[in-house]
Design a protein around this nucleic acid. Structure first.
Lengths: 161, 161
DNA sequence: AAATATCGTAAACATAGTTTACCGTGGTCG
DNA sequence: CGACCACGGTAAACTATGTTTACGATATTT
């Protein structure tokens, strides 16, 4: 009679009931990409970085922000400099990084990960490697390597405008 | 001297300067998936559906919402029922769909695409097929089919929790 | 030196999501 | 049967996060 949870919070997406044969490349890429994304945050949260949320992942991802300039990070993430700056401010408040002035360039700034920031980033890489091992086991080493190679070719091609 | 644009709006993400060899599966999937996502919205907007925005894509995607129930759509999209309902309301206001009561089940509702909604969904599929043709030409038919097949295997595997 | 472009920042605003709460229907079990 | 409760959907308040607009400081150009 106490009002328990009667609402559905955000959950991991449900797989669609449609045969995979008919699926187009959009869904085939999007769904696993999102699954990985969510899992990284989940495990990062469980690993002591519970103050990191989804949008922070725009920074703790591939090449990592260490040594980069805010504007470049914004461009890589596909968001405005202002939005990126807000994110950076938030992560600075949380103790994951700091912004300092670039040497010899008064207007530029440089992002530096703190020790905690480095730990979180290393952890994210660790989780990703664990995921890669799982995929490797499921698909087999040859096919997994093949999948990555094909995706690399997409990356290097002019397809991604 | 009039205040022209001095700010960087959201742009398409910049490719990172790191060799693809070192990239992990997360980025390899995420970046092309996002590129496709953005392109579909862009072309949908250009094709006369300029009132559709990014979040609407949670509905106009793979199996399509026609005949589905709001709660199921929410689960598939990985968001709360309330958020999905807001989206559905927005799309209903824009004339893309309507919600009606399900027959024989007083509490359930059914989403139905209007003619305009069907047109938009068909257009999205059309754009995706065009993208597939481009990938097919770039990678070669064999390798593109292989890529899709491998992604299907991922989909069917228990990897995507 | 003045004009202008660039990098970073800040505040106002808009959008979109979660949390909290509720209504009506349908099933369950005393 | 009737009380209870689970379930699908909805609405409002709150929160988070992004864009728009605007600006300050530094570098560059003329």
């Amino acid at each position: 009679m106490t009002n328990l949870r009667k609402t559905s919070p955000a959950a991991t997406p449900l797989a669609s009931p449609v045969p995979t044969k008919d699926m187009l490349i959009g869904a085939l890429l999007r769904v696993p990409a999102e699954a990985i994304h969510r899992r990284i945050i989940r495990e990062l949260n469980a690993a002591g970085f519970s103050d990191l949320s989804l949008p922070h992942m725009a920074i703790f991802r591939f090449p990592g922000p260490d040594g980069a300039r805010p504007g470049v990070l914004a461009q890589q993430a596909g968001m405005s400099k202002q939005a990126m700056n807000r994110l950076l401010g938030s992560l600075e408040d949380l103790g994951y990084l700091k912004r300092s002035n670039a040497p010899r360039e008064g207007r530029a700034r440089i992002v530096r990960l703190t020790r905690r920031g480095q730990a979180a980033f290393a952890r994210a890489i660790h989780i990703l490697r664990k995921i890669e091992r799982e995929w490797n086991a499921e698909l087999g080493p040859k096919d997994f390597a093949l999948l990555k190679k094909l995706l690399c070719r997409v990356w290097e091609s002019p397809l991604l405008q």
